[in-house]
């Protein structure tokens, strides 16, 4: 979601996203550490388990803010196409994988992998979209 010549909206996106990623690491470490050492139960376990997911939700909000703030309609259009490619690719893989899990012996796909998978597909579709408009 970045370009060699970044406009103000892209710069804000970059910093917000970086802060959200930093928060993710900062919250993931104590969550894992807490579960390994204290084996929390009940509400505390649920709270601690959800904690690292909050910055991920934040990242999605950051993407939404970027799309709302991007003034260059062509760039916004390209980013939306890239995100749609990411959503489509991810849905395609998890849907096919889901049926494979039901009917064959493939390995279980952990749900936390879906989010990074989405960004892999966004990356691929960003390249495809850029080539199309070159």
């Amino acid at each position: 979601m970045t370009s060699p010549t970044k406009n103000p909206a892209q710069r804000r996106f970059f910093w917000r996203f970086a802060i959200a990623m930093l928060l993710y690491v900062l919250l993931l470490v104590p969550a894992v550490w807490g579960f390994v050492h204290y084996h929390p139960t009940g509400v505390l376990a649920y709270g601690l388990a959800v904690l690292p997911a909050l910055p991920i939700l934040g990242m999605l909000v950051v993407v939404g803010l970027y799309l709302a703030e991007e003034k260059d309609e062509f760039v916004r259009n390209m980013q939306i196409q890239s995100l749609l490619g990411g959503i489509g690719g991810t849905l395609a893989v998890v849907s096919v994988w889901g049926f494979l899990e039901n009917f064959t012996q493939v390995r279980h796909l952990d749900l936390f992998l879906v989010y990074p998978l989405f960004w892999v597909f966004v990356g691929i579709s960003t390249v495809v979209v850029r080539l199309r408009y070159r």
Binding site: S3, T5, N7, K71, D72, E73, F74, V75, N77, R132, Y133
Partner: peptide, 18 residues
């Protein structure tokens, strides 16, 4: 007040402006 790539895309007919 747009990017150069926007101008290029409009000029080459690949993107229709609003």
């Amino acid at each position: 007040e747009v990017s150069r790539q926007s101008v290029n895309a409009i000029e080459t007919g690949k993107f229709d402006p609003s």
